[in-house]
Simulated scan of single mutants.
Amino acid sequence: MQGFESAFPTVAEVVTNPAFPTALWHFEPHQSGLLPVAADRGGPIDICWEVHGDGPIKLVLICGLGFPKWSWQRQTLHFGHDHGDKYSVLIMDNRGSGHSSKPFMRYSTSEMARDVLEVIDHLGWTEARQLHAVGISMGGMIAQELAMLVPERLASLNLLNTAARIENTTSFAEDMSRRITMLMPKSFERTVTFAASKIFAQAWLDEPDECHIPDVHTTPRVRPPKQPAPHDPVLGNGNLETGDPPCPDNYGRFRTNYERFAAQEIHKSRDAEGYTKKGLVAAGFHWKSPKQLKELADRVGRERILVVHGVEDDMIPVPHGRKLIEYLEPAEGHIVEGMGHAPVVEKTEWIHGVLEQRIAVGEKLSGRG
């Protein structure tokens, strides 16, 4: 791992990159709010949500563990702004993450799915076969629970790098070593490189940053939210006079994919809202039996289901994806060589194409194609 870490620029070097202030894309949503949910489930719990685009096709993007809603920024740009006349894209911070409430009690993926459903109902997206749900990692577990709750309202179900349950896919010693390493306290520098090694394929991290970046002249944006000025000399001191980050004249490009990821992690660390680790318990205790998955597929319709998993996923290893494909028998299942845990970032254009095709199928099956 030491060689892996030394191959990348330091956090201090990433902060000095001219593109650093533009790593997060602050798009102006068409709708947004803070909705109290779970009134009869231990709440109220405020869920921070945004809708981008005002098109007729309703797309629900569900975050994974520790990922705020801006983690979908590439998809928000593509579906909600570049094609916002066709799609309405809902993104939200899960309970325990970002700008949503962080309840003290333990909670589950099924409770988190009910949170999502309350936001969807609040928006009035209540028609039969209207929703196209996309969940990644723990978000895919939440999407499974959503499908169990309202199968008749799903036009398509798209599960990315997720699992029916987290299982040990290696030897006991390897599994324990992996878990201990993940939970051990780390310096911020080590945290970033470790996360990169677990989430992404190493070859991708070394590649040039060639993502499709927004055009400031055509994509509405808002000023980045205020952040407390950090005192850490590595992370910088922000704008000490006003606390207001600048609204960039254009979006910059980084030298490598790793640098863009590291910059986003630094911005996330500056967000005082942060996230709790109770979601780790929710993901760890998520469990759907083969019988439940068969029932889910029967009720949603296998022709409406997509499963994608990366062979180099070191967060939720690929046997989990293979099992989901075996049990769900989806219309489309992809086990992708050379891809890690984040297809929405590592293979953005490809996954957009796959999702567009699956959405088109779902719309046609629902009588709207």
Score class of each variant (00 low, 15 high):
Gly98Ser: 15
Gly98Met: 13
Gly98Leu: 12
Gly98Arg: 05
Gly98His: 09
His99Arg: 14
Lys102Gln: 11
Lys102Tyr: 01
Pro103Phe: 14
Phe104Gly: 10
Arg106Val: 03
Ser108Trp: 04
Ser108Glu: 04
Thr109Cys: 13
Ser110Ile: 08
Glu111Met: 09
Glu111Cys: 00
Met112Cys: 05
Arg114His: 07
Arg114Glu: 02
Val116Arg: 04
Val116Phe: 02
Val116Met: 10
Val116Cys: 13
Val119Arg: 14
Ile120Asp: 02
His122Thr: 05
Gly124Thr: 00
Trp125His: 08
Trp125Cys: 09
Thr126Phe: 01
Thr126Cys: 05
Glu127Cys: 01
Ala128Lys: 08
Ala128Cys: 04
Gln130Met: 00
Ala133Arg: 02
Val134Asn: 15
Gly135Phe: 15
Gly135Asp: 15
Ile136Tyr: 11
Met138Leu: 07
Met138Ser: 02
Met138Phe: 00
Met138Thr: 06
Met138Val: 00
Gly139Ser: 06
Gly139His: 06
Ile142Ala: 01
Ala143Asn: 14
Ala143Val: 11
Ala143Gln: 08
Gln144Asn: 11
Glu145Lys: 08
Ala147Trp: 11
Ala147Phe: 10
Leu149Asn: 01
Val150His: 09
Pro151Ala: 04
Arg153Gln: 14
Ala155Val: 02
Leu157Gln: 10
Leu157Val: 13
Leu159Met: 08
Leu159Ser: 05
Asn161Pro: 08
Thr162Lys: 05
Ala163Lys: 05
Ala163Gln: 11
Arg165Cys: 00
Arg165Val: 00
Glu167Ala: 13
Thr169Met: 12
Thr170Lys: 06
Ser171Ala: 10
Phe172Val: 06
Ala173Asn: 05
Ala173Gln: 06
Glu174Cys: 12
Glu174Ser: 15
Asp175Asn: 14
Met176Trp: 06
Met176Thr: 05
Ser177Pro: 00
Ser177Ala: 14
Ser177Phe: 11
Ser177Thr: 13
Arg178Leu: 03
Arg178Ser: 12
Arg178Ala: 12
Arg178Gly: 03
Arg178Gln: 09
Ile180Thr: 11
Leu183Lys: 10
Leu183Cys: 04
Met184Asn: 07
Met184Ser: 10
Pro185Phe: 00
Pro185Glu: 00
Lys186Trp: 02
Ser187Thr: 11
Phe188Thr: 03
Arg190Gly: 01
Thr191His: 12
Thr193Asn: 09
Thr193Arg: 11
Phe194Gly: 03
